[in-house]
Design a protein around this nucleic acid. Sequence first.
DNA 1: TTGTAAGCGTTATCAA
DNA 2: TTGATAACGCTTACAA
Lengths: 297, 297
Amino acid sequence: MKKVTIKDIANIAGVSISTVSRVLNGKGNVDPQLKERVLQVIKDTNFQPSSFARSFRKSSMQIDVVLSKWEEHYLRVLRGLTESLGEQQISVIPKTNLNNLGDFVVAIGEDFDDKLNASMTIGQELSSCSVVFDHFSTLNLIVSELLSKGIDSFAFLCEGLSNYRACKLYGAFMKIMFHHKIESYEIKMLNSKDPYDVAKELSILPGAILCSKDEIAAGVMKAFKDEGIKIPQQVSIIGYGNFSCGSLLGPSLSSVEYMNEETGRICGQYILKMINGEEIPKKIVLSTRLVKRESSL
Amino acid sequence: MKKVTIKDIANIAGVSISTVSRVLNGKGNVDPQLKERVLQVIKDTNFQPSSFARSFRKSSMQIDVVLSKWEEHYLRVLRGLTESLGEQQISVIPKTNLNNLGDFVVAIGEDFDDKLNASMTIGQELSSCSVVFDHFSTLNLIVSELLSKGIDSFAFLCEGLSNYRACKLYGAFMKIMFHHKIESYEIKMLNSKDPYDVAKELSILPGAILCSKDEIAAGVMKAFKDEGIKIPQQVSIIGYGNFSCGSLLGPSLSSVEYMNEETGRICGQYILKMINGEEIPKKIVLSTRLVKRESSL
DNA sequence: TTGTAAGCGTTATCAA
DNA sequence: TTGATAACGCTTACAA
């Protein structure tokens, strides 16, 4: 079953390939009768023009996207990218195999290394153009706010220090504790331990717990609920990532939002510039914000 | 800034384009010295072969995927597709714009109509090859199990009847009630009302509530918890879709699982067959299963 | 081992 | 209004 080409259509309809092409693209004038005939043949043969030949001819663009994990945040960025670049007729192709990547690669995630040689990295700083998030300002704002509400002891539950975001958050937390001269704070590295268990290992119950991931916050909340600890009256819980489950939890989870569709769209704009040969910043820092819900004062 | 092509490389390196091509593809023998020189030029010019020209030449394949919503379930199918087809060097391209689709289109979702003219539909039955889910068997199994545990009154909370899955579930529920001669049951159509509110409108508290979506189940659980109703002791709640939040809720949500990565992989296999011109079934029915957690007996 | 040249399916230019 | 034909960048017989 050979693939039907524009040539076949032309033969069957008894016209030239240029006529078929004109019908296909609606460009130029074609005799209505001929047009009808060509369209009929196209329908009969179920002909589909080769998208590759088209893209090739039009020298269109496509970019490959690799995700460090197939997770909600990353997918939301992917969506923004797909939408904004799709408007420019640029295809965005998610790749799960790192071996066979194309000319323009975007890496979304936190645990890539420079071997990947991406053209743009989102969520992490590598040698390419990097789009990262301002973890410090928002965290600082949160802590200031909590301080003003009389909360003076904190804990930071962190997944570990093996990824970019976790490191940055850790650094930000330390800096903020120092800056506000807060002495009562505790840091727990989970390193793949269950947050439910780690929550119970806290030496004292702090006024607020900041978590480096929403999943951790969810585990902590479960642990506290089981122990009868009131959230947020006794302890405020704040997650990171604003995953979609947050609003369904009881109490609903306050969380820092970052890396959403908007990010994808912004990156799409920069990619467009890169493609057009414009210079773009080596590092782009996007802001984050707290989505306040019931789990925190 | 013109795009660098294989021709440029050949010129600069002082060899023919076939030599460059050979270096690029590692096929055929090339004098090590020449090879070195070519590689150097490639690096210097930052040359990337045009993926379109390559795909075109090799007559590779790509398929477009449209999602009715950019939601977790659909994305998981997309992932399965991407992985399984990626192994065959077939690119999977998510599209958010329905106007400019390619030769092979896969539709994932529940509210498409036949205008789309997809080659394969997942989650819904259209004129093309359709991959759908067996909603009846699993629901029947669930009800039988609950009956055997002494539960004899049921409710079905449904988002409405405007999508394929909801209709099928509704039909299955009715059939099952009839089949088991269950007389105490209640059906609520949400039609975009808040499940939290609808839960409180139930005329009696049934022994088990089946929901057409996990999000509904989450809302119901929240309402019941606020009213001090014990789950699952007083009422079993079962969701549909097994979204990732389910395990984080308290109590964790029992839910029917369908449309996951596996589905994507299976569809990938069928797509491969279609591409190779093999006949495949017009309708493929995949099974679902209950993931039992704390919210149900 | 290297280079020449044909061809992939389409679009666009130009002449008829 | 139509049809020949060149061109897009790359791979691959085939010839040198």
